[in-house]
Write a protein that binds this DNA or RNA. Structure first.
Lengths: 338, 338
DNA sequence: GTGAAAGCGCTAACAC
DNA sequence: GTGTTAGCGCTTTCAC
């Protein structure tokens, strides 16, 4: 009987108890073919009695790998990033690797935090507006596998993103189809590559129809309050407000209600992401495959990690997104569901 | 000029380049007082030239600590867990530790995954319905600091949770105040300690007023679809439907609409969590301090890790929650805002 | 089949 | 002040 297991047992103790060398313990526990069934059993029993679990640190140091990878994202507020991270974690777990998360979240020392993270993982997924391309390039140059997610491509690196520009054009066309001619875009294209793409798409579709899209209205955030504040001194009857994401759009909806403007009769509003709230707010928006974004990044990264000798060309994938028409974009025939 | 930095530099290379021993490199880079300014500079320069960053593995192995801790949660679906995890990450980052996340998410090998995670961290936060108390106790017995989050206490371990029972009583009283007398509870108390507390509170408050609460209606999930399905063959005029969380409640709302029942005239519905969608659905619910839950757990865990010699008694904290009255619970005077 | 021993990259005693 | 050296806990040649 083992008396205590307070300080974790090491491979040496198991070896001693089983009457073998540490090498044999290592082999036996890893199901190597080079051990007798009898020895294996003896070692197993000893390990069990001592409640032995190999030290991750010792193992990683010896193997030269962490069996973990990291994801860096701007913030976990709002369901969007959460869903992406969940998809990532689920895929990584399936591949047998642990996940370290890092939210840069307006942190001033984001670079340092990412560098630190880089030292703990076999590869890194870098999302959107977190750190600059220079750091990404620098880390990639050290041989660290990196996948870019929802972010402008960098030569030589895999990139996964969602369709922005094209669906934004569809969205804009839908709005002009409703007869809208006066537009504003709420959100900072400089704040995220995704938003930049959406802005471009809307502007393009509008200019194709001879409608001008003013410069984007930059907000001090991506959340509901930011949208609400901005909308207050902006909204007016006849306007179509295209928002960078759903939270902003929901803020606009609240502001409109407060101002006594009806949506969509007086004001059209659209979002992006198709959050749960969008459905209940009757918000026209664009759905994106959030989990799939995360899962794809995790799988690609794993491939880069496990096949380092396979320096395949950088891959790029753009996952499709989809316009979801609800009430907020204009008056529809009655059969249009919520 | 360093020619390449493809394979990461080690402390030995820096030592050689600087013409000192590895011990001096270690000291210089860690701002030890035991090095001349001149030496320090020389080492710094060499390290910079080689783009040297100490190996996390080597360092952790030598120090005997990971400088990381983990959080285990059931799933990241729904904004609730995401917010908790964000609060956790933010607090941990401030304390200088990395965060490993693990979503058990219905995984059958949750125990194994948690054991594996336990080997990578200095401490663990275990949330809700993930793994059993037996495993938690076992891990705690090895000396691993553990904090329980949104989960029934285990002797000797710190526990952080949100107020459930008491606010549930307030909620139920509010409903009877509206005149409701027929109730159902949607959600499985066995599926989460939080839900169990909510059910207890509602039942208690009702029985205090001589109203009986039937056995809970167990769902096959905690999401919108589950609520929708369950509501279909359940809802009837005059019923007050108390839901375990907002997503279920939102599902009920959709089912009610489909069935041609008006809320709150024909049917009262309440949720729990105060998701963004609840606001737009006019759903009466209970707000909980999600980020604060995560942040508190992270801070408590850090304290346990950094002060192992301080075997303070197990702490328990119940963070307050708050009833948010909207339209769905009953007809209100006009001044009740959304 | 099994053991001895050499690392993996660092930190921290202990010498000088 | 700086260097030497012994670990930290494992994996993996290389002998036997």
């Amino acid at each position: 009987m083992a008396m205590k297991a307070l300080s974790r047992a090491t491979i040496y103790q198991v070896a001693q108890l089983a009457g073998v060398s540490i090498a044999t313990v290592s082999r036996a526990l890893r199901d190597s073919e080079l051990v007798t069934a009898a020895t294996r059993e003896r070692v197993r029993a000893a390990a069990k009695e001592l409640r032995f679990t190999p030290s991750r640190l010792g193992r990683s140091l010896a193997e030269g790998r962490h069996a973990a990878n990291g994801i860096v994202f701007p913030e976990l507020v709002g369901p969007y990033y959460a869903e992406v991270v969940l998809g990532y974690e689920a895929a990584a777990a399936q591949l047998g690797t642990s996940v370290l998360i890092l939210a840069t979240n307006g942190r001033t020392d984001a670079d340092a935090a990412v560098r630190e993270l880089a030292g703990r993982v076999d590869g890194l997924t870098v999302m959107g507006r977190t750190v600059g391309d220079d750091l990404v390039t620098e880390l990639a140059a050290t041989g660290l596998p990196i996948v870019l997610l929802a972010r402008d491509p960098v030569p030589g690196l895999d990139t996964v993103r969602a369709q922005n520009t094209r669906t934004a054009r569809v969205l804009a066309a839908h709005l002009t189809g409703h007869g809208h001619r006066r537009f504003v875009f709420l959100g900072d294209p400089g704040g995220s590559p995704d938003v930049a793409g959406r802005y471009r798409g809307v502007r393009k579709a509008l200019s194709d129809e001879g409608v001008a899209l003013p410069a984007p209205v930059r907000l001090d955030g991506f959340d509901l309050e930011a949208g609400q504040r901005a909308a207050r001194d902006l909204i007016a009857p006849g306007l179509a407000v295209v928002c960078a994401n759903d939270e902003i759009a929901l803020g606009v909806l609240l502001a409109a209600e407060a101002a006594g403007l009806r949506v969509p009769e007086d004001l059209a509003v659209t979002g992006w992401d198709d959050l749960l709230a969008a459905r209940f707010a009757g918000l026209t928006t664009v759905r994106q495959p959030m989990r799939e974004l995360g899962a794809t990044a995790a799988r690609w990264l794993d491939r880069r990690i496990t096949e380092p000798d396979h320096p395949a060309a950088a891959r790029r994938r753009i996952l499709p997104t989809q316009l979801v028409v609800r009430r907020s974009c204009g008056t529809h025939p009655p059969e249009v569901a919520r």
